[in-house]
Design a protein around this nucleic acid. Structure first.
Lengths: 196, 196
DNA sequence: GTCTATACGACGATAGAC
DNA sequence: GTCTATCGTCGTATAGAC
């Protein structure tokens, strides 16, 4: 019993730290957040933080990989729920739109290409597993004949690029309505660009 | 004569600082570059740097606005050289591709949406004048009838989004061939998505 | 305008008691 | 495992001579 409590306690502290870190990095960025800030926000002492993580970069790395993993889970759900490439890719875009509306700062953090500035050993976002999975959906569409035979990067950029741009514009305050309002328009145009 | 030399000297020092700053920020990022680094790289002493600029942020701001201005000039050239929206938008994408191949790090810096982390008073990239000019080209295309009547942000995202995604992928090392090789494919698909 | 020397604070990280 | 106290470093920015 005691050992279970201890394990839970350890787990909770770790999660508290990671959760506070996500909040702070998303809103202020990695370099504008000190370990002291994380300690304050999480209610965990600095010493304890360094007990759980090697250094500040270790915290960032853990937190980032958590995000990636969650994203992978969502994408797997989509593969289960939808069968055609058309429906799956559309569902991916809808997912990204919903996430952008619900947690804009986390989305901004996740899409930012600037992780390399503080996680030099991490792959850039677009070569991460989620983006790879997204490209796989396109590849399957080409194989099945739903999508024209063309370069995979070109097809993926045409299918997802417009939506990702809409997300960036929304996060930058250039669009005032929720992204879901544009889903049909964006999707029908994007699909038109690659459909057989 | 003396006064001219002094003025030139001042101008050169300023430019040396800005040029070194661009190099360093592009390769290592704002937060990983110290003013000492800028001093070393530019060959200008710290004291002199602070004579020309209020603070580190001031250097970044000047450098960033220089980049924006150069971009505006290029876009104006395109408006002069091409007449239809179709040709102008295509030329814009070609310009971005060429710039990405010639100065990848500067391009990465310019497109990064993370300027807010160190330039909180600057508009985000997509609301900057160059992006506004790019959207204007699309708007004129809608008015002239070349492009379908549709939401301007949707149309712009469909036209430029795919190419911008290709650039990001190339900068992240996901694409091995020069972007120019993809120009025709990307453009014909992108145009198909919005053309009347 | 340019330089050297230096002030001063904040940061990441550690030591060691509990 | 968690905490407080503290160390050493390095960053930005300034002072003041030339």
């Amino acid at each position: 019993m005691t050992s279970i409590n201890l394990k839970q306690s350890k787990f909770n502290t770790r999660q508290q730290i990671l959760s506070a870190t996500l909040t702070l990095f998303s809103s202020k960025g990695y370099f504008n957040t000190s370990v002291r800030d994380i300690s304050r926000e999480s209610g965990v002492s600095i010493g304890s933080i360094y007990h759980h993580f090697k250094d500040k970069e270790g915290i960032a790395s853990s937190m980032y990989n958590n995000l990636i993993e969650q994203m992978v889970n969502e994408l797997e759900q989509i593969k289960i729920r939808h069968k055609t490439s058309h429906d799956r890719c559309r569902a991916v875009i809808e997912l990204l739109f919903v996430m952008s509306e619900e947690k804009p700062e986390e989305m901004e953090f996740m899409l930012s290409s600037k992780h390399r500035d503080f996680l030099p050993n991490e792959k850039p976002v677009c070569s991460s597993i989620p983006f790879e999975m997204m490209r796989d959906l396109v590849k399957e569409g080409i194989v099945s004949g739903e999508i024209q035979v063309m370069d995979l990067m070109v097809a993926s950029s045409c299918l997802y690029g417009p939506s990702l741009r809409m997300i960036t514009s929304r996060l930058d305050g250039l669009i005032n309505k929720p992204l879901q309002d544009y889903l049909d328009a964006i999707w029908s145009s994007s699909w038109k660009a690659v459909a057989s």
